[in-house]
Simulated scan of single mutants.
Amino acid sequence: MPDEMALLVADVFEAAGLLRRSGEAIAATEGQTQARWQLLSVVSEEPLTVAQAARRLGIARQGVQRVANDLVREDLAAFRSNPDHRGSPLLTLTPHGHHVLERITVRAAAAHRVLTADIPGEEIARARALLHRVIEQVHRHEADGRTPPG
């Protein structure tokens, strides 16, 4: 009998790769990259430090710092003072950054509608619910300080 969890993990990685390529193509229509789009998106709701944004994205702070600097140079984002920590400024979107993010988001929504045209919304909701359960289990396992058996 196949290890269903191993197969699910492989499928998730395959889907992530395909969706990342699709995202790169969508972001490129606005002269951006997937990494820039992700950072624009994560700081669009509230200004964050680079370290906070990196944690939310699950990637290294150094990589986020490079992308943040690029966004600032292109006037898509700006650093502003952080009242809670003078050494860690907050990254926030500029009006131009909000505009670019909105254009990318509209393109992505159209692509998502095409990709899911033949998939009922209930199936997508069930898949998301399962992924959330797996994510919660992994977080719980990590919080307990356990290493995976094996």
Rank of each mutant, 00 (worst) to 15 (best):
D144L: 07
E136M: 00
E45Y: 03
H112S: 00
A15G: 10
E123Q: 10
N82R: 13
P83K: 11
F79R: 15
A111M: 10
A110V: 02
I26T: 15
T105A: 12
A53D: 05
L57W: 13
P89A: 12
Q62L: 14
F13A: 09
P120N: 09
A143L: 14
A6G: 01
S41R: 09
T147A: 14
L18N: 12
T92G: 09
E123W: 07
G58T: 14
A10I: 01
H96P: 10
L76V: 10
P2I: 07
V138C: 04
H85N: 08
R80P: 03
E74L: 05
G63C: 05
A28Q: 13
V134P: 01
W37L: 01
L71T: 07
A28W: 08
A129D: 11
A111P: 00
D144K: 03
L40Q: 05
Q34C: 07
Q34R: 11
V134I: 11
T116G: 01
R133S: 02
A10C: 01
V100L: 09
L130C: 08
R66K: 07
P149W: 05
Q34S: 09
T49N: 05
R55V: 06
R61F: 04
R133A: 06
A110I: 03
G58K: 14
E30S: 10
A77I: 05
H141G: 11
H132D: 11
R20K: 15
G58W: 14
A110P: 01
D11R: 12
R36K: 11
R113Y: 00
G87R: 13
L71Y: 06
V100E: 02
V12T: 05
V12C: 03
S22R: 08
L93A: 08
V42Y: 06
H85T: 01
R73F: 01
A53H: 04
P83E: 13
V134M: 05
I104G: 08
I124Y: 00
A35N: 02
V114M: 00
S22H: 09
V100I: 15
A108Q: 14
S88R: 13
R36E: 03
G63T: 09
V67F: 04
A108H: 12
R80T: 13
